[in-house]
Amino acid sequence: MVKTKPGLKLRKIGSQYMIADACDGNVNMSSVYSLNQTAAQLWTQIEEGNSTPEGLADYLCEIYETNKDTALHDVERQLAEWKSYGLIC
């Protein structure tokens, strides 16, 4: 199961999506991560409890014309990147 790090918030500013550390009403701008729309959709799914790579890949297959193997590979790559940045656990 994948969970987002507590205190991180997904924000949409114009057409851009960003993850920022927001604690006590303040946003730490020293660590802001930019996301494309698909990554933002995955982030939202994780926040809503869809927290397995397989479930996230199924979600991508529902909204994009892709096969399960490709979707799972892309999800696993994105999760590994987020984990390396300390955004998920």
Rank of each mutant, 00 (worst) to 15 (best):
M1F: 02
M1G: 11
V2L: 15
K3P: 02
K3Y: 09
K3G: 08
T4F: 01
K5R: 15
P6R: 03
G7H: 00
G7L: 03
G7W: 00
L8C: 02
L8E: 02
K9T: 06
L10M: 12
R11G: 09
R11V: 15
R11P: 06
I13Y: 08
I13W: 04
G14K: 10
G14E: 06
S15F: 08
S15Y: 14
M18W: 05
I19Q: 00
I19A: 03
A22K: 12
C23K: 15
C23F: 07
C23P: 03
C23W: 12
C23H: 14
G25V: 10
V27S: 03
N28S: 14
N28D: 15
S30C: 13
S30T: 13
S30L: 09
V32C: 05
Y33H: 07
Y33P: 05
Y33C: 02
S34A: 10
S34G: 06
N36P: 04
Q37L: 03
Q37A: 06
T38D: 01
A39R: 09
A40L: 03
A40Q: 05
Q41P: 00
W43K: 03
T44L: 12
Q45T: 05
I46G: 01
E47D: 12
E47T: 08
E47V: 08
E47W: 07
N50M: 15
N50H: 15
S51M: 03
E54M: 06
E54Y: 14
L56I: 08
L56F: 07
L56P: 07
D58L: 12
Y59M: 08
C61M: 13
E65V: 11
T66L: 13
D69Y: 15
D69R: 15
D69T: 15
T70D: 11
T70G: 10
A71T: 05
H73Q: 10
D74W: 14
D74N: 14
D74L: 14
V75C: 01
E76P: 01
R77I: 11
Q78N: 07
L79G: 01
E81S: 04
W82T: 06
W82V: 03
K83S: 09
K83M: 07
S84C: 02
S84I: 09
Y85N: 03
Y85M: 06
G86S: 08
G86I: 13
L87I: 10
L87N: 02
I88M: 05
C89N: 15
C89I: 14
